[in-house]
């Protein structure tokens, strides 16, 4: 009950942050705009509807990821320090509230907020694709119009479950990132934490490169060890972006449902570890 009360208040507070609202609105606007953007491509190219859809999906997921990363960073960075600045933490911890309940409640509130933001962006993204698919089907039903506009008559499914898996995977990386930033917020200042969080995401996003550097032949042993350690310690954010074909054109996942489940497990485990570390630090932190 206490954790839920803190989480609810955190959501209400976070959703009123102007900067978060701006990121959500801009991301939704860009996703909607991508509809006209890809229509232009579809009508002017001979690449076929499926490749246009791939582009549209990648663009939408990319927009969601970009906005969500910033939201996760801003939310995670301010989550606890703001409680100190506003002194709300003193009245809360003076009540019979255990410290782990406070941290868990704040984190739950943050990931619920991210869930709402991802939900809004995700629904817009899926609707955009569905609208585009309906348009493409109408075009293929009228071959003369299609030929006139220079488009192919390739059939496209209206609803693709991979979009849902893609949105879930994008959300999972927000969850992992915000848990890391929450942990950092108990150690570093807000500005340092923001850049540290961004750096962790960037390195985690390039984990394939880091792993290859760790295994490079002839390289310095210490450097190899360093790269290997980084690749083991930091979360592999690139693996959450597999459905984004612009980033991973070479990867084909046969069962996206199973892959998402596996990544959810990985994300939850990483989040849990970061949260436990944050709780242990906060238990001995003077407030």
């Amino acid at each position: 009950m206490i954790i839920w009360a803190i989480a609810r208040t955190t959501v209400g507070d976070a959703l009123r942050k102007k900067i978060l609202q701006v990121f959500i609105v801009v991301a939704i606007g860009l996703i909607v705009l991508s509809l006209s953007f890809s229509q232009t491509l579809s009508f002017s190219s001979q690449r076929g509807a499926s490749s246009d859809f791939m582009l549209l999906k990648s663009f939408g997921l990319g927009m969601m990821a970009l906005a969500g990363i910033f939201i996760s960073l801003i939310l995670g960075v301010t989550l606890i320090p703001q409680e100190f600045e506003r002194r709300t933490i003193y009245t809360i911890l003076a009540k019979p509230v255990k410290r782990y309940e406070f941290i868990t409640g704040k984190f739950l509130g943050a990931i619920l907020t991210l869930g709402i933001a991802t939900g809004l962006m995700g629904i817009t993204f899926i609707l955009t694709i569905v609208i585009k698919a309906i348009g493409a089907q109408q075009l293929s039903a009228s071959p003369t119009l299609g030929q006139m506009l220079g488009s192919t008559t390739e059939k496209v499914a209206i609803f693709d479950w991979n979009m849902v898996w893609g949105v879930i995977l994008v959300y999972l990386q927000f969850m992992v990132l915000s848990s890391i930033v929450l942990l950092f917020s108990l150690i570093f200042t807000q500005t340092v934490n923001f850049f540290m969080g961004a750096a962790v995401y960037a390195v985690g996003f390039m984990s394939t490169v880091v792993i290859s550097l760790g295994g490079a032949e002839g390289a310095n042993v210490a450097l190899q060890l360093f790269y290997k350690t980084i690749s083991y310690v930091l979360p592999r954010f690139d693996q959450f972006n597999i459905p984004n074909q612009l980033l991973h054109p070479e990867t084909q996942v046969t069962n996206m449902g199973a892959y998402t489940g596996m990544m959810a497990l990985y994300g939850l485990l990483y989040t849990l570890l970061a949260l436990v570390a944050a709780i242990l630090i906060f238990e001995r932190k003077e407030v």
Partner: peptide, 12 residues
């Protein structure tokens, strides 16, 4: 406990 100049969640 009532802290000095207490602040609360302003949206509430």
């Amino acid at each position: 406990y009532l802290p000095e100049s207490p602040y609360f969640y302003e949206h509430m």
